[in-house]
Write a protein that binds this DNA or RNA. Structure first.
Lengths: 189, 189
DNA sequence: GTGCTGATGTCACAGACTGACATCACGGCG
DNA sequence: CGCCGTGATGTCAGTCTGTGACATCAGCAC
């Protein structure tokens, strides 16, 4: 078949997560990751822009998914509900791999540099949702605020889901509860 | 007086902003900054943990200010109003230096690495507010959501303020309007 | 004046990233 | 069948960030 072992990209990601969990993010060098994947450091950087990105480059284009889901909502849907629907769709994807999400999050939470990257990824998803809302005719600052509020609900719901030892509810349930709480809170309660 | 020129820290910050505006963040090396401040690279790192931090280490402890302002609110104040009051206080400080804020923001917006740092600083302020709310007896996830919602309103309001060419309103006004919009939006409008 | 302190300088170094060039299996094409 | 282009990878040299260890030196206390 191929001249090289297949799926170099996937091997790099798997090697990275293993090593980050074993020794921590800082203590792991890119050369270490590449070696475990049977590649060189230079090749790592051909697949991932930097050392952190290996934890954030998923196979799915979440930006497009969010934009499409918002665009697909009925014209009469309120902006906040369109955002909730889009995040529910994304939540359905993550929901399928709770343990994987927990391992990944353990690595991220242990390192401020990784937290930074996580936050800018979330902000980028929020910006994509705000764009999609503007395409529906929602004006600023409403579009930005709605998207940011949605991201806030998702962040808190995701955290609750990850830390829920009982596994009683799925991610969408937790996020949905956060939307409800957010509505209560901004109503002054 | 002193053996060295005074205020090495301030000189480093001033030199950094100048150079970032002149040549961009990436094109400026830490050695460049230190040289313009009449110091060495090693001394730069004694004052700032990394190259980005020189843009974010202000003289005021905003975490403490937010926490104290929230703690000072009447017991009967709703969480969202306590958060709004705290952010209004912080807004009053930034308000005093609109042009400085604009220059700084121009540098930050031009570089993703700086945007990452800005986001984690904001998230950290949000966490401080959430802590202050919990100290008032607000439970999670309400505390986290309220703080995050406040940060969202502040972010959007700050951006509007920076980009408002008319200078017609102050920062607090823009943030306050965003809080109102946020309340409308989460009510489904 | 002696010695301590704190800010700075000097030096060496690991590790993140980048540009330029070399290698080499595979697939197409004559 | 053999040549050749292509794309993924390897090799190498280099810049820059960030850190540890040690040296320097003005001022201050005693």
């Amino acid at each position: 078949m191929g001249r090289w072992e297949p799926d170099a990209r996937g091997r790099l990601m798997a090697a990275a997560i293993e090593l980050f969990l074993e020794h921590g993010f800082e203590q792991t060098t890119v050369a270490d990751i590449a070696a475990r994947a049977g590649l060189t450091e230079r090749t790592f950087y051909r697949h991932y822009a930097d050392k952190r990105e290996v934890l954030f480059a998923g196979p799915i284009d979440l930006h497009a998914l969010l934009a499409e889901t918002i665009a697909a909502q009925s014209d009469s849907a309120a902006p906040i509900d369109a955002v909730a629907a889009a995040l529910d769709t994304v939540g359905g994807l993550l929901q399928q791999n709770r343990e994987g999400s927990r391992l990944r999050q353990r690595v991220i939470d242990a390192n401020p540099m990784l937290r930074e990257r996580e936050l800018i990824k979330l902000a980028s998803l929020g910006a994509a949702m705000a764009d999609a809302l503007r395409a529906r005719g929602v004006t600023d600052p409403t579009a930005s605020l709605t998207a940011e509020a949605g991201i806030a609900a998702f962040k808190v719901g995701f955290e609750t889901w990850i830390n829920d030892a009982t596994d009683a509810h799925d991610l969408q349930h937790h996020v949905s509860e956060c939307f409800d709480q957010l509505k209560a809170v901004t109503a002054g309660r």
